[in-house]
Computed example of a mutant assay.
Amino acid sequence: MATFVNMIGSGVFMVSAALFFTRVVGLPLTQVGLGMGVAAGVGLFAGVPVGHLADRRGPREVYLWMLVIQGVAMAALVVTQSFWLVLVALCIGELARSAGGAARGPLVRGIGGAQLSSYRAYLRSVANLAGSCAAVAAGFAVQLDTRPAYLTLVLANALSFVASAAIVAALPPLPPVPAPPRANRWEVLKDRAFVAITVLDGIMSIHHQVLLFALPLWIIGHTSAPRWLVGAAALVNTALVVLLQVRASRGVDDSVTAGKAVRRSGVAFFVGMGVMAAAAGLPSWLALASIVVGIFVHTIGELWHTAGSLELRFNLAPAHAQGQYMGLFGFGTGLANMVAPTVLALFCIAWGVPGWLVLGGVFIVVGLVTPYVVRWAERTRPNAEQPA
């Protein structure tokens, strides 16, 4: 429930943030982009230290405070009118969001227990369902296009953090897992195999922006497919994730099967991107069919990658250091989200069909390499621990 409420609030803000800052606060679009970019960059660095704090103090308490801080930062946007105050509020909110993600990892692990794989997949399905509901809610506000409507969305997001915190507060506390005597304070940064997996997963995570960023530009600028497919693509992707993520995660319950899932995902991304790229120059109905097939195949790859990625980040992290390991993994994913629009613009839009195929080939290479790095990681667990 906390995940659903949180994602509803965050979703409505993400959809309407640029309009809120330009139409209500009165900032130029350039300052909005700069402020959100700086805040996202600052937030990347909070995960590891706060994750370590969650490991030592208990994940529920740390995650609870991060939700409260996000709620306060979001509420502050309602009364800010200058760029610098907006920037401060955004940075605080992003720091708390990144830190909260690191603290949430050990909490999910503790609650999921023996059914952790299924529980994680269920949470992702819930998050995607919430995102769809948020998009609908934000759509009404954007249609009204009034100051009260945008203020309502921001306040709703602030309240969603408070409501999520109240739900988390009702959970039983999870005591920290004692660290071995020789455990290093920042051992994740010395775990070269896990750092390598984080880098590979970050590269693979660029795929999340293919359907959201590259495909709409491709449909409108390079194909004869109907423009309504831009919105339908996101809906089809979300529906498939909601319906199939739990099923796709079955059997992905250790590092070996996770590495194989990531390997399969690389192939699926290459095929899906190739089919979507092939829509260029085709008649309207063939372009439509090609893109729909590509979306379906790409989403299958997304399901496999998510199942493998989640298993690796939990299974390869020592039980006493789940928070800081989640923090590093979050850094890789966050960095990928920041560079993805530029990478996709250069490869898929500027270069065209060859760029789609080359980037798909990169995903194949990453997928093929991942199982070998996973074996390396299993042989070199810190402090000679078995995977958690």
Rank of each mutant, 00 (worst) to 15 (best):
A73L: 11
V373I: 00
R375D: 08
A280K: 08
A149P: 07
A261I: 01
A103Q: 02
P226E: 04
M1H: 15
F83H: 06
A158E: 02
G71S: 12
I295R: 02
G105T: 08
L200M: 06
M14F: 15
M66G: 02
R147H: 11
A134V: 07
T3I: 13
Y325F: 07
A134W: 06
L316M: 13
A40P: 08
V68N: 10
E311Y: 10
T257A: 11
I206H: 05
V343S: 03
G26D: 04
T30H: 10
A134K: 08
M273H: 00
T306G: 12
A89R: 02
V236N: 07
V38F: 11
G105D: 15
L316E: 05
V50K: 04
R56V: 14
A268E: 05
V241R: 08
A17N: 09
H208I: 15
A279G: 00
S224Y: 11
V275G: 01
G101Y: 03
Q322P: 12
F20N: 00
L244C: 15
G71P: 09
V42R: 05
S16Y: 07
F13L: 15
A319H: 11
S16T: 03
A18L: 14
A18S: 06
F270R: 04
P371S: 03
I69G: 09
G281W: 12
I69H: 12
Q115I: 13
W228L: 08
V25P: 07
E302Y: 07
L90Y: 06
I220K: 13
F270V: 05
W356P: 05
V241I: 14
M276G: 07
A183N: 08
L123D: 07
P181E: 07
E311V: 08
A289W: 13
L123R: 08
V292L: 13
R23A: 09
G35I: 04
